[in-house]
Design a protein around this nucleic acid. Sequence first.
DNA 1: TGTACATCAGTGAACGCGCGTTCACTGATGTAC
DNA 2: TGTACATCAGTGAACGCGCGTTCACTGATGTAC
Lengths: 251, 251
Amino acid sequence: MFLVTALEMRHNVGMATTVPNASRTARDRARVELTDEIKAVARRHLADHGSAALSLRAVAREVGMVSSAVYRYFPSRDELLTALIIDAYDAVGERAEAADSASRDRAVDARWLKVCEAVRAWALANPHEYALIYGSPVPGYAAPQATIGPASRVPWVLLRLLTDGVASDEIVAGETPAMSRTIRSDFAQLRRTAAPAVPDAVLSRGLAAWSQVLGNINLEMFGHLHNVIHDYDAFFTLQMRRACEFLVRGA
Amino acid sequence: MFLVTALEMRHNVGMATTVPNASRTARDRARVELTDEIKAVARRHLADHGSAALSLRAVAREVGMVSSAVYRYFPSRDELLTALIIDAYDAVGERAEAADSASRDRAVDARWLKVCEAVRAWALANPHEYALIYGSPVPGYAAPQATIGPASRVPWVLLRLLTDGVASDEIVAGETPAMSRTIRSDFAQLRRTAAPAVPDAVLSRGLAAWSQVLGNINLEMFGHLHNVIHDYDAFFTLQMRRACEFLVRGA
DNA sequence: TGTACATCAGTGAACGCGCGTTCACTGATGTAC
DNA sequence: TGTACATCAGTGAACGCGCGTTCACTGATGTAC
């Protein structure tokens, strides 16, 4: 969970997606369209062969270009990967934000559940993009600064839910477990950055709930529940419901 | 979490590791040693370049063989990968079992915590082997039957702890959440296979605790807590302690 | 509005590389009599 | 114990493949006057 401040967020969000009508010349429009097409084809290749096997040449071939032409759009294979990673974070972030605002008038625990289910639904629909951002990192690839903003969108939604829930007394502080000074200071910084007035105990339970979301999705998608659980939908909802309840009740 | 019955377990466990003195001829001993050396080198290459980039030729070069010679030991690159996966499952399984038996005389929640910490310690010490088995799957690679036994070792330890805890009343059933018929039948089968007399509520909480172990390790190892949490050791222990308490107390 | 120049997308050949796998072979090690 | 034969590890050349990236180029699109 990367985190940036709200200001940085506003600056970063949406920068990765295209800006359809801002540029007017035919050349500019063609450039935007082809950039998108390259990314779309690359995304499909990701789904077929995984991120490590993503090949500029194969993508170029399918787009109908000669391989060197792709370099007019992305300076290297890694930059293309970065673009895909940013798009993936933005896509799941958007789903989470949409799920949150669609349930704006409901209780905080119900909204939390909706957001978690939106994340899972996106993951199931885009397994390789999910693996790209939440699975094992691509070997030899270091995520650049530009990914931090998009990567923060989901955590941001969750932290705002915690903040709202604490403010409205829908989330109770509960017992504060013993914790070291370093952890308390980490939580204090998190509070300052993104979750005003949310007590340590709630932040801790919030992170636990979030780790359970990703843990469950990983177990499910990477086959570790094979032959154990058969109705994944129901199982996920069951687990998330309980995690939610624990989050808001603190016990 | 794959699962096999206890009988299959006994049959599978240890089959992947070497059998030092069972074979006597110089040729056989050399074969065992070289097989191990190839795997050791391959493991190191895994750590350097990731599983997708694991190259038979590179491994052969470092072992000091010509590339085709490796085919005397592994019929293909995928079989070598399978061997590494089995070894990884066996390694983490062994650590979990050792942690469990080392704390045999303690309370069930303490033992659970020890097992979780052993899994994390192994993951931190062998990040790429961890990614190999609990990260995103290797594209184009389908795990064969032979991995199921070793993959079951850790879940097996945890399920036995649940069974013990329920038997000794250290784990209380707690409230049983509403769940669908399919889920109840999945739990019933799990109970039959591996966790006699453990009620649905406890199985459900147990799976939640396990998903939290993997969720936390993923968040930590794959960089999603970067700049948020600084003392990962303390954070993991804090989260696991709370997960444990919830597991045994059921609320 | 028309022209001269600048910008830029896309081409095609080339560089140098590493990969998995097959195959016929040599020579050392093991086995049966 | 010695010999004839079978087994098997390792060699080296070859097959056919795909990769990322560079480079000088052509021709179309855009811009300034």
